[in-house]
């Protein structure tokens, strides 16, 4: 009985606690990294004042955000206005429970898995729940009862629904290789095949990476925010902690998308060349570290893309998705199917 309680209640609660504890801080430092990298790309220094090289800036920022006055526009739809940022954050946090961070470790005689919930339809559930983020964005923009947020919300709705299609098709190509929907199963399939799926599905990976940037509303696809046209996009009217919640949701969603990318195409927590015996010394590095290294690389890629590409025009954005990515992803599925059939 106690064993049952520890395995099914205590361990998940501890995992959730640790993850949420780290996440708040991690998000702050991803923002700092973004400001620093963007600054270096533009030959600036970025935040330098708080702490050595601005390292304490996230803490100062969050203190400031907490102390700010909580403003709700008079004509806003109050309930939805308050609920929207919560929806965004809740959806993003829920998906984190399905991400396998490593092989898991054994502590005090209990095996602690690297994932909070290994569901056998894991990746579908992640896509489904992260799709609910769209509501937070649309309703946030609508409930503000102001024109720029509404425009931002409309753009976000169309963009996220469209790119979800390309994203899902790209994921499907990877799933055909894995033969399972479980996130842990996908990594194990790559171990069994002895190859990361990036090497067999490079096209799907490219589509996924583009769609992932669009799905998280990041530059160059940040039409929903588009500071230079729409003031602040869907969260123009938000301030203080509510605004910060939107940010927390956005950065967590980035993290989750990067984690899916790593799990599906880059071998998850596996070390490079997982089947080459000569490289076994790499196992000295814990699997969780490999995973975090890969995810961090993708977070850097996000920032790098933002610093390098100009924003797409709205019609270009839609044309890219509907006229290039979706046909290409369907073609890719077809080719994958035919090749698998011929090799089988």
């Amino acid at each position: 009985m106690t064993d049952f309680l520890i395995i099914n209640v205590v361990i998940p609660l501890v995992q959730i606690g640790v993850l949420l504890g780290i996440l708040g801080l991690a998000t702050g430092y991803i923002v700092l990294a973004e400001r620093k990298v963007l600054a270096f790309i533009q030959s600036r220094l970025g935040p330098m004042r708080v702490g050595p090289h601005g390292l304490l800036q996230p803490i100062a920022d969050s203190l400031k955000l907490i102390l700010k006055e909580d403003l709700i526009p008079g004509s806003a739809d109050k309930l939805l206005y308050i609920a929207s940022p919560i929806v965004v954050v809740a959806a993003a946090f829920t998906t984190l429970a399905l991400i396998p961070f490593g092989e898991g470790i054994t502590l005090f005689g209990y095996h602690i898995p690297g994932v909070i919930a290994d569901v056998n339809v894991g990746i579908l559930l992640i896509l489904g729940i992260s799709g609910l983020t769209t509501y937070g964005i649309i309703l946030g923009g609508w409930s503000s009862n102001s024109k720029y947020p509404l425009l931002g919300a409309m753009r976000a709705a169309a963009q996220m629904v469209s790119y979800e299609i390309a994203l899902t098709f790209a994921v499907l190509a990877g799933l055909m290789m894995a033969g399972t929907l479980s996130m842990v199963g996908i990594v194990e399939a790559q171990l069994d095949m002895g190859v990361w799926f990036i090497f067999v599905q490079p096209v799907a990976w490219g589509i996924f990476t583009i769609a992932m940037v669009a799905e998280t509303n990041r530059a160059p696809f940040d039409m929903a925010e588009a500071e230079s046209e729409l003031v602040g996009g869907f969260f123009t009217e938000y301030s203080g902690m509510r605004w910060a919640l939107f940010f927390l949701g956005e950065y967590t969603a980035m993290l989750v998308m990067a984690a899916i990318n790593v799990t599906l195409f880059w071998g998850g927590w596996l070390r490079p060349f997982p089947n080459v015996e000569a490289l076994a010394f790499l196992d000295a590095v814990p699997s969780g570290i490999w995973f975090l290294l890969k995810v961090t690389t993708f977070l850097y890629l996000y920032i790098w893309i933002r610093g390098t590409f100009p924003r797409y025009r709205y019609d270009q954005l839609m044309a890219l998705n509907w006229k290039s990515l979706i046909p290409l992803s369907i073609l890719n599925l077809l080719v994958t199917g035919v090749v698998m059939l011929l090799l089988a």
């Binding site: 339809v121 579908l124 559930l125 896509l127 489904g128 729940i129 799709g131 609910l132 769209t134 629904v161 979800e164 899902t168 929907l181």
Partner: peptide
């Protein structure tokens, strides 16, 4: 999962 992905989400 499909219920949430297609109906609720899409």
């Amino acid at each position: 999962a499909v219920q949430i992905l297609v109906y609720a989400g899409g």
